[in-house]
Simulated assay, not measured.
Amino acid sequence: MSVGTPRRSTPRTSPLRAGGSTDILVAACLWGTTGTVRTFVPSASSLSIAALRIVLGGLILLVLAACTARAAGLRELAARRSHWAPLAAGAIAIIIYQAAFFSAAARTGVAIGTVVTLGSAPAFTGLLGLVTRRSTLTGRWCLATAGAVTGCAALIGGGQDAGADPVGIGLALLSGLSYAVYTTIASSLITDGQEDRAVVGALFGLAALIMTPVLLWDSPGWMTSPSGALIALYLGAVTTGGGYLLFARGLRTTPATTATTLTLAEPAVAAVLGIIVLNEHLGPLALTGLGLLVASLLVLVAPTRR
């Protein structure tokens, strides 16, 4: 992973934008494996899984930021009071995103909760970008996002007769909004010249500090077995630590609006793994949605010229 000096995006079509999109797509693919891996520890509660990912991943990200050549970036973040409020807001957004998502899934089902959370995040990020005047919504982004959200809905909802709980829908929308807030804050700090590792380390480090009592309280005994320890290490170190490092690096050159749309690759990966590993079946509607989702993401990452 490159740890060079952060670079601002340029008006030309350059490998930087393509590289940033690739980093975010790889991160989304890692996140897409969590649902399948989660099935191997049925005794663990959703809250315990969420707390584990934040605490272990946050500690790893914080240690990487503090113990590498980029430690100066972490000190700079902490030294400037103007950064304290966005860092605190970003850490809280991480916690709300995780907690609200799992609560929504428990009330209205995983399918609907995932569709509403992941589908609303790009729209919320676009609105935040307009409000903060940090981005503009292009026709290409609107087309690709609409196609990706539609494909996501068809993929996850195809063939399922799940009911919608109003409170669960509200929690899923809160989760999507919180994820958009985190992405916007991280993107703002990174594109303003802060080290990407320092930013993600500080945000997740603060979130880990808050969530440690929750992890200890919510029966973490499932992590004491050899298989449980390996799964915990994968969920915390690989999908959270590695995934969010890639996501932060991608935010150097990829607008937050585009980044949240690219993360819709997560349910596509989850669906493919469900077929291969869990022997799940996708009907025609879900397969159509998968194709539409992939096509929309390809439209979004294809190089453009100005």
Rank of each mutant, 00 (worst) to 15 (best):
R8K: 14
S9E: 13
S9R: 07
A18Q: 13
G20R: 08
S21F: 01
I24R: 01
A27M: 02
A28E: 05
L30A: 04
G32I: 10
G32C: 13
G32A: 10
G32Y: 12
T36A: 13
V37Q: 01
R38A: 15
R38T: 08
T39W: 02
A44K: 07
A51H: 04
A51Q: 12
V55T: 15
G57V: 10
G57L: 11
L64I: 13
R70G: 11
G73S: 09
L74P: 05
A78F: 05
R80Q: 15
S82A: 13
S82Y: 02
W84D: 02
A88D: 07
A91C: 01
I92M: 14
I96C: 05
Q98S: 08
A100Q: 03
A106V: 00
R107Q: 14
V110I: 14
I112T: 12
G113S: 09
V115K: 11
V115N: 11
L118I: 15
G119I: 13
S120R: 06
P122I: 09
T125H: 07
L128R: 07
L137E: 10
G139E: 06
R140Y: 00
L143I: 12
T145F: 07
T145M: 14
G147A: 15
A148W: 06
C152R: 04
L155N: 00
I156C: 07
I156K: 03
Q160F: 04
A162K: 14
P166N: 08
P166Y: 07
G168Y: 11
G168E: 02
G168H: 08
G168P: 03
G170D: 09
L173D: 05
Y179M: 15
V181L: 14
I185W: 07
S187T: 11
S188G: 13
S188K: 08
L189V: 08
I190H: 12
I190L: 11
I190K: 11
D192H: 12
Q194K: 10
D196Y: 14
R197P: 00
V200I: 15
V200C: 08
A202Y: 00
P213T: 10
V214S: 11
L215P: 07
L215G: 03
W217V: 08
W217C: 07
W217H: 05
W217S: 05
G221N: 14
G221K: 06
W222L: 03
M223E: 01
G228S: 11
L230D: 05
A232W: 11
L233P: 04
T239V: 11
T239G: 00
G242K: 09
F247M: 02
R249Y: 10
G250P: 13
T254R: 08
P255A: 12
T258R: 10
T263V: 15
P267H: 05
A270N: 12
L273E: 12
G274Q: 08
V277A: 07
G283P: 05
L285V: 01
A286P: 04
G289M: 05
L290R: 00
